[in-house]
Amino acid sequence: MIKIENLEKVYKTEEVETTALNGINLHVKAGEFVSIMGPSGCGKSTLLNVMGLLDKPEGGSYKFIDTELLTLNDRERSNFRKRNMGFVFQNFNLIDELTVFENIELPLIYNKVPATERKKLVNEIIERMNIVNRSGHFPQQLSGGQQQRVAVARALVTKPKLVLADEPTGNLDSSHGNEVMELLCELNETGTTIVMVTHSSHDASFSNRIINLKDGHVISEKINKSRNEELI
């Protein structure tokens, strides 16, 4: 589904140039769950941002089911993003002024889904995430694990083809972290493609494939056999 070739990204400040991505090649198949690992500053978040169309690389190509995404303008990128991608962040990034229900509803509004259908979709996902009794609460009133569930719900409500997760368990304790990882697995099993950046090899063990980055290069790729066997 995703074909990334020779991706280059350089951060420039007045004095230094930092190469974040240095000729990355990456292919992701539909239905795959890929983890990206590596030390701090290896370029993994940059790669995720580029994949999420939040950042523009200097060179290379990024094809998403045969569509070249790097040549799109801002508006086209926005449109593509909202139709095809969902995001989960380390720090949840829920809007504090909106309730749980309203937060989850937001991406549907940007996708111009009619109000009645929105209500149906949001209620469905709230039920699935087991946060029904929280739907009228504001994010500040929830625990970290609950907030991340809401964030995942928000990422899924549009039924995206690709979910991008940036250290989704980074701010959670291990039991809440596991809950979230299990949620992502369930999701993957229903056919959603997931690309996740993580520091934790425990989290990575939930995925099909682990990619190691260093200094902007892919240094190793590992198929997670146990997980793939499960699949088979």
């Binding site: 926005s78 990034n93 809007i95 937001l106």
Partner: peptide, 14 residues
């Protein structure tokens, strides 16, 4: 800032 970021990620135009 966060609100803007989230909305943009969800596909809001500038």
């Amino acid at each position: 800032a966060k609100e803007v970021g989230v909305k943009k990620v969800m596909g809001a135009y500038r």
